[in-house]
Simulated assay, not measured.
Amino acid sequence: MVERRPVLTFVSHLILVLGVAIVVFPVFVALVGSTQTAQQITSSHPLSLVPGSNFLESYRLALFGGKTFSGSTIAPVAPMLWVSFVSAMTIALGKIAISLLSAFAIVYFRFPLRSLVFWMIFVTLMLPVEVRIGPTYQVVADLRMLNTYAGLTVPLIASATATFLFRQFFLTVPDELVEAARMDGAGPMRFFRDVLLPLSRTSIAALFVIQFIYGWNQYLWPLLVTTSEDMYPVVLGIKRAIFGEVYVEWNVVMATAILAMIPPGLVVVLMQKQFVKGLVDTEK
């Protein structure tokens, strides 16, 4: 029986509220700043926390670009959002597809040096893109993949973590299911499609959320492989808006930051139940 203690309950709730406030406050400041003009932001110290009347103009400039009152030229963020979305979706779906097939092969197929192959995949966890960025960039450049979606996504698609998680889950699948599928005449791919994929839905959902945010927030790799503004993701758009002009339009920068947070936020909200279930299911 769990004993209820009002003091501990109050303290725990207070800590949670403070934690939420710490996380949400910068987002609130950015949202308020995006409704004001650049002059209001730079002239008031500290920044006013009262929403302004420049909401539509700030987000119009952020999405579609144009000239500001100060003469600065704003690059449109809408194409950057599309580049980020395509890249994040490709990375997330590619990681899941490759990891599912890799884990399936390692668990259900008998071939020489199977354990060595798995550990070779697992060891790549110690070699993230930042460590091998030089040779990876050279390969991408030699294949003429700079300023392309393939260059943005292909080097980031493989995932040892996802392969390991799917392998651990597949090892928990009862052997009776394999035998039943074999007696029904199901081949390996049919067993994979009709049995393993449905059982892996919650794990796939959890990994999709993680990998989508990972792909959306990429900064260093796109910074290297993109030199054309047409292929800039939105994270580079924020950096360009801050350092690209002598006079920084902070209202547009904050509007761009808010726009950049919306897609990953929607993914987390819409897939929250599946995400939590995929992480806490006892059979995983």
Rank of each mutant, 00 (worst) to 15 (best):
P26V: 14
P26A: 03
P26Q: 11
P26S: 07
P26W: 06
V27H: 00
F28D: 02
F28W: 10
F28E: 04
F28C: 06
V29L: 05
A30S: 15
A30C: 08
L31G: 11
L31H: 06
L31E: 00
V32Y: 01
V32I: 15
V32N: 01
V32K: 00
S34E: 01
S34I: 03
T35H: 03
T35D: 01
T35Y: 00
T35E: 00
T35M: 07
T37M: 01
T37Q: 01
A38D: 06
A38F: 01
A38V: 15
Q39A: 12
Q39E: 12
Q39G: 14
Q39R: 04
Q40C: 08
Q40K: 03
Q40N: 10
I41E: 00
I41G: 00
I41C: 00
T42N: 13
T42F: 06
T42Q: 04
T42I: 04
S43R: 06
S43M: 08
S43E: 13
S43W: 07
S44C: 11
S44M: 12
S44E: 13
P46H: 03
P46L: 06
P46M: 04
P46K: 14
P46S: 09
P46R: 03
L47Q: 07
L47C: 10
L47H: 03
L47Y: 10
S48T: 15
S48M: 11
S48E: 07
L49C: 10
L49Y: 09
V50Q: 04
V50F: 08
V50I: 15
P51Q: 08
P51K: 04
P51C: 13
P51V: 10
G52N: 01
G52W: 03
S53K: 12
N54A: 10
F55T: 15
F55V: 15
L56V: 13
L56F: 14
E57H: 14
E57I: 10
E57D: 11
E57K: 11
E57S: 14
S58H: 10
S58A: 11
Y59Q: 13
R60E: 12
R60Y: 03
R60P: 07
R60T: 12
R60D: 15
L61I: 10
L61P: 02
L61K: 07
L61C: 05
A62K: 03
A62S: 08
L63K: 07
L63E: 03
L63F: 15
L63Q: 08
F64M: 12
F64G: 11
F64C: 04
F64I: 09
F64W: 14
F64P: 07
F64T: 12
G65K: 01
G65S: 08
G65L: 09
G65A: 05
G66I: 11
G66S: 06
K67I: 11
K67R: 06
K67M: 03
K67N: 08
T68L: 02
T68A: 05
T68P: 10
T68S: 02
T68D: 05
T68R: 01
F69A: 14
S70E: 12
S70F: 11
G71Y: 13
G71T: 12
S72A: 10
S72H: 05
S72P: 09
S72E: 13
S72C: 11
T73I: 09
T73L: 13
T73R: 04
T73V: 15
I74A: 02
I74K: 00
A75K: 10
A75F: 07
A75C: 07
P76Y: 12
V77K: 12
V77C: 05
